[in-house]
Measured scan of single mutants.
Amino acid sequence: SLEELLKLARHALRHGEEIHVLDRVITDEHEIKRLIEELERLI
């Protein structure tokens, strides 16, 4: 769900981890922040 993805993204950002989204691995902090902003808009 989007909520789950948002939780994962926030966790990854906090802990400096990578996040796997739709067969992509996002490691860049700015990309993760952008993902979080997009998800928050959708929810």
Rank of each mutant, 00 (worst) to 15 (best):
L13K: 05
L2G: 01
R41F: 09
E3H: 07
S1N: 13
L22S: 12
G16I: 04
L6Y: 02
E4C: 03
R24F: 08
L8K: 15
L8R: 14
L39A: 02
D23A: 04
V21M: 11
L42F: 06
H15V: 11
R41C: 04
R14G: 11
E40I: 09
E40L: 07
S1I: 12
T27W: 09
L8H: 09
H30I: 12
A12K: 04
E37T: 12
R24K: 11
V25I: 14
E18R: 08
E4F: 09
R10T: 06
H11C: 06
R10G: 03
L22M: 13
L35V: 06
R10K: 13
A9P: 00
E40D: 05
S1V: 14
L6D: 00
K7E: 11
E40R: 05
V25L: 10
L42V: 07
E4L: 12
K33G: 07
L5I: 08
E31R: 05
H11G: 08
I32L: 12
R34L: 15
S1H: 12
E29Q: 13
S1Q: 11
L39F: 04
I26N: 01
V21C: 05
E29P: 15
E37P: 01
T27I: 10
R34W: 11
L2N: 04
G16M: 07
V25A: 06
T27Q: 10
L5K: 04
G16E: 04
R10D: 12
E18L: 07
I26H: 04
I32W: 02
L5D: 01
A9L: 15
L6I: 07
H15D: 08
H20W: 06
I26E: 01
I19W: 05
R14H: 15
E29G: 10
R10P: 00
E31G: 08
L13F: 04
R34K: 15
D28S: 13
E17L: 15
E37N: 12
I19C: 02
L22V: 10
D28Q: 10
I32G: 01
I43P: 01
E38N: 12
L42Q: 10
E40P: 00
V25N: 06
A9V: 09
A9G: 02
K7S: 09
